[in-house]
Design a protein around this nucleic acid. Sequence first.
DNA 1: GCCCTCTTGTGAAACAGTTCACAAACTCTC
DNA 2: GAGAGTTTGTGAACTGTTTCACAAGAGGGC
Lengths: 214, 214
Amino acid sequence: MTEKIADSTIRRLSLYLRFLDEYEASGTPTVSSEDLAAKGGVTSAQVRKDLSHFGSFGKRGLGYPVAELRARLETILGLDRRWRVGLVGAGRLGAALFQYEGFRRRGFEIVAVFDDDPDKIGTVWDELTVDDVADLDRIVAEREVEMGIVATPADAAQGVADGLVEAGVAAILNFAPRRLEVPDGVTLRDVNLVVELEALSFALTHPGEVVPVR
Amino acid sequence: MTEKIADSTIRRLSLYLRFLDEYEASGTPTVSSEDLAAKGGVTSAQVRKDLSHFGSFGKRGLGYPVAELRARLETILGLDRRWRVGLVGAGRLGAALFQYEGFRRRGFEIVAVFDDDPDKIGTVWDELTVDDVADLDRIVAEREVEMGIVATPADAAQGVADGLVEAGVAAILNFAPRRLEVPDGVTLRDVNLVVELEALSFALTHPGEVVPVR
DNA sequence: GCCCTCTTGTGAAACAGTTCACAAACTCTC
DNA sequence: GAGAGTTTGTGAACTGTTTCACAAGAGGGC
């Protein structure tokens, strides 16, 4: 497979996986694209098209076998393994992310937390000691960190991202409200909370002039 | 103006506004679409097209007057006023969002915090008392809450959303990992952190097969 | 005042993503 | 085992978004 997959497709696969978890928990043996579509608020053609990029997993007339499709999606998304995640920024947002159950449940394990505040460095979070961001390079290598989460103030974010890239991290989730430069080959995603609220503000200010998000 | 504006356009306007803040702070009198494009990682044609939906603000040969364009974007996005926001969920994520400076700076003021945990109800956050979610309807009306942020566990989220809608809130930002149903006319946006990490997982698992997000 | 340079604003073209629509394939019933 | 009823997988059509390309306008120099 060398076809490029759209971001929107990947996000929907992630949704479908969550729905399949539920179907499997409830003992449902098969689901149709129509079932998944209804749950996800998309069309059934969309579901079939999304899945068709990766193979043909269904049986005509019957639908998709829940357990098998769930396992396939897990593999496709790369969730059939653990991911070692480094969190930079031990502020309130960092703490919230660290504690977030949903990450661990999907195999994302935070194995290092960094900050530059002497008051925070050395404190222990669930058996994990907060390290000095100055040691990021060494510790990322030692603990084989593969993904980075940047939860620092805006002005520190680019330096942190550079450090992560330097240390070999090829995937970064950025919460700092600043555009980060990363080299080709490094995947960067932004979560910008202010942008989200501003989009709500726009929608309330211009009723009927916004194309619905989903 | 009755043309429908794409979500991607709105998100970029929000970025441009941030850049214009910086230009204004540094005393730059005008910027070209090329300048803004470089900062935002988009093309200059994109910038001009985005702005052109709302009028023509630039001068050929010169570019856009920074102060004026900033003010126009502020108005367009509905940020030339305060927004009264209710936060539901006083857990770690709720606390992080409550303290987040970026919201207040843009005029988003959290005027009510709700939870259903008796240990949290009654505690005081920066002079604001955490209220019982059972009183959501009354308090939302009293304090004229216009936007809701849902930062509850997944299983409580739909009920909370229903309550917010019932109380007249027409814009909801949802952090719970669950698809919410809201009636037409209510704007809903999702921030799903697990989806973001799973997209990184996919990108690392299938190098070169992802279309870059920006 | 005229030319040269710069940059906007915008139709048209290109591209990307979604939906349609239907043949093919499977199950179930009788 | 034949017919009825489902549901997939997928080209083709469609819709929406981005990029191209260029005429029109503005400023600056001489």
